[in-house]
């Protein structure tokens, strides 16, 4: 229970929050199935205690974080972020967590480190989606950020939502939240963090490079081949209120993050 987590000053939106029931029953977590309703039905099969996150690569102090270190070792904050999925739906979620920068600093990235790679748990016995014969994802799920993106104060490591422990289907016990990027960048149930000097191969980018870029910054001007990104459906919606709203550059966080991409052609580095 994280009711005491202080609110992250200046980081939260005051838009209507997506109700808890929707946040925890409408998920993309392909390790448990490709249907939005699969994770809530099957994620309970995943054991999250004990849990270890291994931090390796270009760091002075490689090592492991155990669940207790994660839950007790950081000053938790509540941050209400917009979450924009590449599939053109979006939510507003009150997360509880701490900046990823705080975690990374403990392991002391070396001067050569330029990228961070994240890895999700891959445990076939507990993740039925990974046992699907027709799935073409090369497990485990991997994601990555440039080091400056990872160190940005908006980049959050979440351990809870709505003041409570993170439910399994939302990526327990520890997940990334990068609010200005499409949701698939916000990797769930992390067991590995590696600092690198070159850009890591990430799951979706490897699978379909023309559709998913490494950066995956929310951008209404760069369409996904399958979906227009100009609008989004803010959830929940209803028959009478489709709740279609225009998508904002960097998901509305341009003021904080646009400088990270100065001079870059965002239609090339999508």
């Amino acid at each position: 229970d994280y009711a005491s987590a202080r609110s992250g000053q200046g980081f939260s939106t005051d838009e209507d929050k997506t109700p808890l029931g929707d946040v925890t029953s409408y998920n993309n977590f392909y390790e448990f199935g490709t249907d939005k309703g699969d994770p809530v039905d099957h994620a309970h099969e995943m054991t999250t205690d004990p849990w270890t996150v291994e931090v390796s690569g270009l760091v002075n102090k490689p090592g492991k974080l155990h669940l207790e270190d994660i839950l007790g070792g950081f000053d938790l904050q509540e941050r209400i972020y917009r979450l924009r999925c590449v599939e053109a739906w979006s939510m507003v979620i009150p997360w509880v967590g701490f900046p990823l920068a705080e975690l990374l600093k403990r392991f002391e990235p070396t001067g050569d480190a330029r990228f961070v790679e994240f890895r999700t748990l891959y445990r076939r016995a507990e993740m039925r989606g990974t046992r699907s014969f027709t799935s073409i994802i090369d497990w485990p799920y991997r994601e990555g950020l440039r080091l400056d993106e990872a160190m940005h104060p908006l980049t959050l490591m979440a351990v809870g939502l709505y003041g409570k422990t993170l439910p399994n289907q939302n990526g327990a016990p520890l997940r990334l939240v990068v609010p200005w990027k499409y949701g698939f960048k916000s990797i769930k149930s992390i067991v590995g963090i590696r600092l690198l000097d070159s850009q890591p191969a990430t799951s979706w980018q490897t699978l379909a490079p023309s559709e998913y870029g490494f950066y995956a910054n929310v951008n209404p001007r760069v369409d996904h081949p399958r979906w227009s990104q100009k609008y989004e459906r803010r959830l929940p919606n209803s028959l009478f209120d489709p709740n279609r709203i225009p998508t904002r550059m960097f998901n509305g966080y341009a003021e904080q993050v646009a400088h990270l991409y100065k001079g870059m052609d965002l239609s090339r580095f999508y």
Binding site: T18, V23, Y26, K36, G37, W89, L235, N237, S238, P242
Partner: peptide
């Protein structure tokens, strides 16, 4: 389900 709001978070989808 639509009338009783039981279509989930994203009835559209």
């Amino acid at each position: 389900r639509a009338a009783t709001g039981a279509l989930g978070a994203d009835p559209a989808k």
